[in-house]
Design a protein around this nucleic acid. Structure first.
Length: 760
RNA sequence: GGACGAUUAGCUCAGUUGGUUAGAGCGUUACAUUGACAUUGUAAAGGCCACAGGUUCGAGUCCUGUAUCGUCCACCA
């Protein structure tokens, strides 16, 4: 007997199919076949009911990780709806991933002994662009390897000119509506990355720090002890603050404190913000380096220049200028101790804010930035989620999403990095006109009306009409463009029929970890710009964990590379392992054993098909004389007719008897449950069902009966068995597309495709 | 401090309107096997379903409380 090694030879060799299903022999060819035949390309002018998912665009700066393989849920939905006969669009894309990419690229530069400061803006941007385009190709081919039925003909990149234009338009609209404003506020600034972040990009690190108790002398005698975790910032203090009702300090209010070592004088004020129970009940107020103090100082009209610069060194202290913050702290603490100002230092549980990217301790620093006023946007978004205009699956995430939206604060969208979409805001340089009202900008929150926004590069200053305006050097927070992804991808120029056909999209499928950063913002921005929801359903998947249930991380060394898995066991096995026996939205434990068992299932399917095919050939009048050594268990009657369904036949023994009816009944109920599960977004359950049915009922039970029939000389039930198997293949196809398609082709001809058929 | 999840076989996990004998994968034990598949089949062992109350004819499932673990959010001079 032949062993089939190569798909290409299949038709010429055909020895009852290969004994094993070898994914490596099939997957690549099958994907090319699908892609080239255009099975994944959606038609905007189709009359069929639309079903649309926009792929969460992977970052175009690195290989895919196993988390990306979880997008298999999208492929499951897409392929299922395709087999349901819908006009299906799964739009491919890639994200420029601003800070992430720049960070990755800077690591590259560092290896070559260079840094971002060695290049001008234009060169750096061009270099990163090339770097990203290379990675993007790799990433896209990896998505193909996973078998994803993506429409590549409509693929988008977040920095495509038409996308950028849409992002600009949205910004302009927001500006016109007064929902974007420029303000000088404290922002989370990473002195290493050299950019500010929004509050979402901050990682809280709990540590046992120190609470310093420092004695501040009071003018005219006595002193007051304040408690602080940041002694080095007292150079920038504008006041000492106590609670108005605190008996201990009542008489101190209004007096003046002389700051140690520098002898600058600041008042003692009162504010209800102070918690008398904490520390000493007396707080120093440092407006430029503490978010709360910033607001308090504003209330009390107190100002002082910052004492930490954007490079992370001290300024304006007249004592430790130029020193790094950490060094300055050490020196100041020593000096205060020497002079007797340090009363005591207590251990203190506290939270350090770290850069999520490079782990540097973030500095709150005052900076003029663009902010989005999210209040009206989030109100609308909450409503859409609450009244189920957007349905969240699994349901438990609905509450979490609402809570996230409720807690949203104004969103800083300015980033001081090169790699990104440059903000289309321009500053009027003409000092004469700075106080003039802008022509068309109604922007009540902005104090800076010398800015104007323009989608296309302006020819002249839209404020004074004459000056050499300059464009804001900053780029948008990546999430600002990502938030517009569902409509931006569909709504480009001449192709807007796509938008008409497929928007609002049907499902947004993504990990629950970016509910806050992405999903919530897509709802806000999507509704603002299109006046309708960006998607009707949100389906959230969990995180992939290792065999022991631990989070995967490079430092633990337990990271699973999806491509290695595919190389070894095939894409079907990986896909199935991520879904089988899981709960929607729950974390997935991925072990080698599980992947192998799913590979075994693929092989089981293959062999069921092989068994049917062998018998088909043996019993077919046309091919009867092929002969096969494997089928010598019993004499195959040569004159038995083999044609048509016998599902309703009740006579005879084995399958030909009541058994066949039993199969039909059982399969009907399996089909119903399967489709019900899809309606309820319970994809794992539908797959578990098929696994159980095909392996333990169809193969272990019914096929064993069929064998008996063949032995007994009655093989005319084969056709009925094949019908059930074909339908089962279609039902499994969304999960394991390769082996099911390979089987289809093997049994029905290489020119056929399972994707040409629909569920009956 | 708030919200959400988890706690079921040796391990990792399913079990969504409460209903015979609680399941799967892997592992373990015994047997089978040139016959579609050893990436197999048959069978077996293995569970007080975290704990304590409650509702019910009936609870792994619903309610209340407790414990442990995890995630998210808020606060943090």
């Amino acid at each position: 007997m032949f062993i089939l090694q190569n798909q290409a030879n299949f038709d010429t060799v055909h020895p009852y199919m290969d004994k094993k299903f070898v994914p490596q022999d099939h997957e690549k060819q099958l994907y090319s076949f699908w892609e080239q035949a255009g099975y994944f390309n959606a038609k905007a002018d189709s009359t069929k009911e639309p079903f649309c998912i926009i792929l969460p665009p992977p970052n175009a700066n690195a290989d895919l990780h196993v988390g990306h393989a979880m997008y298999v849920y999208e492929d499951v939905m897409i392929r299922y709806q395709h087999l349901k006969g819908k006009e299906v669009l799964w739009l491919a894309g890639a994200d420029h991933a601003g800070i992430e990419t720049q960070f990755v690229y800077e690591k590259h530069l560092k290896k070559q002994g260079k840094s971002r400061f060695d290049f001008d803006r234009k060169t750096l941007f061009a270099d990163i662009w090339d770097f990203v385009m290379k990675n993007r190709d790799t990433m896209e081919n990896q998505l193909r390897t996973l078998g994803f039925a993506l429409d590549w003909s409509k693929k988008k990149f977040t920095m495509d000119p038409d996308i950028v234009k849409i992002v600009y338009k949205t910004f302009k609209h927001l500006h016109e509506e007064g929902l974007v404003y420029r303000a000088n506020k404290l922002v989370n600034y990473c002195t290493s990355c050299g950019t500010s972040f929004s509050d979402l990009e901050v990682v809280d690190l709990e540590i046992t720090g120190k609470l310093y108790h420092i004695k501040f002398p009071i003018k005219g005698g006595g002193d007051i002890t304040i408690a602080t975790t940041r002694p080095e910032t007292y150079f920038g203090d504008v006041a000492v603050m106590v609670h108005p009702k605190d008996e201990r300090y009542k008489n101190f209010i209004g007096k003046t404190v002389v700051l140690p070592l520098i002898d600058r004088e600041i008042p003692i004020i009162s504010d209800e913000y102070v918690d008398p129970e904490f520390g000493t009940g007396a707080v120093k107020v440092t407006p430029n380096h503490d978010i709360n103090d910033f607001e308090i100082a504003k209330r009390h009209n107190l100002t002082y220049p910052p004492v930490i610069g954007f490079d992370g060194t001290m300024i304006n202290t007249n004592l430790v200028d130029g020193m790094k913050v950490a060094d300055a702290r050490k020196k100041i603490v020593t000096m205060l101790e020497e002079k007797g100002y340090m009363e005591k230092i207590n251990p203190h549980e506290m939270v350090l804010k770290k850069c999520y990217r490079c782990n540097t301790t973030l500095e709150p620093l005052p900076k003029e930035q663009w902010f989005i006023n999210v209040e009206p946007l989030k109100k609308q978004a909450i409503k859409l989620v609450e009244d189920d205009t957007i349905q969240i699956h699994p349901k438990r995430f609905k509450k979490q999403l609402i809570q996230i939206l409720e807690n949203f604060i104004d969103w800083n969208i300015s980033r001081q990095i090169v790699w990104g979409i440059q903000i289309p805001a321009y500053r009027c340089q003409n000092s004469k006109f700075q106080n003039l009202k802008s022509k068309q900008i109604k922007n009540p929150k902005s104090q800076n009306n010398n800015w104007f926004v323009s989608v296309d590069p302006p020819i002249s200053c839209e404020i004074c009409g004459e000056c050499e305006f300059v464009q804001d050097e900053d780029t948008f927070d990546t999430w600002f463009s990502s938030a517009q992804w569902p409509f931006a991808t569909l709504k480009n120029g001449e192709n807007s029929t796509l938008f008409d056909k497929f928007y609002p999209t049907t499902v947004m499928e993504t990990g629950y970890d970016i509910l806050r950063a992405w999903v919530s913002r897509m709802i806000m921005m999507g509704y603002f710009e299109t006046k309708t929801v960006p998607f009707q359903h949100v389906f959230l998947h969990g995180m992939v964990r290792d065999a022991k249930g631990q989070k995967m991380s490079k430092s633990k060394g337990n990271v699973i590379n999806p491509l290695d898995v595919i190389q070894e066991h095939g894409a079907d096995a990986l896909r199935a392992a991520l879904i089988f026996g899981t709960k929607e939205g729950g974390d997935v434990v991925l072990s080698d054993d599980k992947i192998k068992s799913m590979r075994n299932f693929g092989n089981k399917l293959w062999n069921v098909g092989r068994f049917l095919e062998m018998n088909e050939i043996e019993t077919s009048p046309l091919r009867r004389n092929v002969g096969d050594p494997l089928l010598k268990g019993g004499p195959i009657p040569k004159d038995l007719p083999f044609k048509g369904s016998t599902l309703n036949r009740a006579e005879g023994s084995g399958l030909g008897g009541g058994m066949l009816k039993e199969l039909q009944k059982e399969f009907n109920s399996v089909q119903k449950e399967y489709h019900d599960n899809f309606k309820k977004f319970q994809f794992a359950k539908a797959f578990d069902l098929m696994y159980e049915f095909v392996w333990h009922r169809y193969a272990d039970y019914y096929i064993e009966q069929l064998k008996e029939d063949i032995q007994n000389g009655s093989i005319d039930t084969l056709a009925s068995m094949q019908e059930v198997f074909d339908s089962s293949l279609m039902m499994i196809h969304p999960y394991m597309p390769f082996v099911t398609e390979a089987l289809w082709k093997a049994r029905k001809g290489q020119e056929t495709s399972i994707l040409d058929h629909q569920f009956s």
